[in-house]
C-alpha cells in the first residue's frame, strides 16, 4: 500500500465516528488490515451463515440488515448508512455472519480483513481496548433499538386515535 493510500485511509478513519479520537498510532496500525472499497446496489456485504470475514465502516451509501423467512420473503430489519458499522460476527468464533447485509444505494466503505484485524487486536491490547469499547457502544445501541422494535409499540394503541 502506498504512503498516499495509507494517509488517505488514516484521514478517513479520523473522520469516521467509530474511529474518531483513536490515537494516530492506532489508526496507522488499523490501515494494515483496511482497504477502501465501493459496493454496487444488490451486492452483499455479508451473507447469513457464511464466513464473517470482513468488518466495514460505512462512509457513503446505504445498506440493509436482512433476514430471509420462508413464505414471508426478505424482512428488512434495519438500515445502516454513513457513520455506521457493519458486522461483528468476525470477532468471535465460529466467525459466521448471522444476517444478510445488502447494499441498497452504492456504498463506499473502509473494509477490514477480519483475520488481519483480529491479529492486530490480539497483538496490541491498547488498540483492542479502544476498538472494543467503541464496538460495545455500537452493539448496545443496536440492542436498545431492537428492544424497542420488539415492543411493536405502534401495534395496538399507538397514540391518541
Amino acid at each position: 500500500m502506498s504512503a498516499e493510500t495509507v494517509a488517505d485511509l488514516v484521514t478517513r478513519l479520523e473522520q469516521h465516528p467509530f474511529t474518531q479520537g483513536f490515537p494516530t498510532s492506532a489508526l496507522d496500525k488499523l490501515t494494515q488490515a483496511a482497504t477502501l472499497q465501493t459496493f454496487q446496489p444488490g451486492t452483499f456485504l455479508l451473507r447469513e451463515g457464511r464466513d464473517a470475514d470482513h468488518f466495514y465502516l460505512l462512509l457513503q451509501g446505504q445498506a440493509a440488515i436482512e433476514l430471509y423467512l420462508p413464505e414471508r420473503g426478505v424482512i428488512r430489519l434495519q438500515t445502516v448508512g454513513p457513520g455506521d458499522v457493519v458486522g461483528w460476527s468476525w470477532l468471535l468464533p465460529p466467525y459466521r455472519a448471522a444476517f444478510d447485509v445488502t447494499v441498497i444505494n452504492t456504498v463506499q466503505a473502509i473494509t477490514f480483513d477480519a483475520a488481519r484485524l483480529r491479529r492486530l487486536l490480539d497483538d496490541d491490547p491498547t488498540l483492542a481496548a479502544h476498538f472494543l469499547r467503541r464496538l460495545v457502544a455500537v452493539i448496545a445501541q443496536r440492542v436498545h433499538a431492537t428492544r424497542l422494535q420488539l415492543i411493536d409499540m405502534y401495534a395496538v394503541k399507538g397514540g391518541r386515535p
Binding site: V74, T79, A145, L148
Partner: peptide, 19 residues
C-alpha cells in the same frame, strides 16, 4: 420498524433517525 425489499427508506425505530 419493519421493511421489505420494496421499501428503500430507513428501517429502525424513530430514535435511530437522530444521527
Amino acid at each position: 420498524d419493519r421493511g421489505d425489499r420494496t421499501w428503500h427508506g430507513h428501517v429502525g425505530v424513530v430514535t435511530t433517525l437522530f444521527p
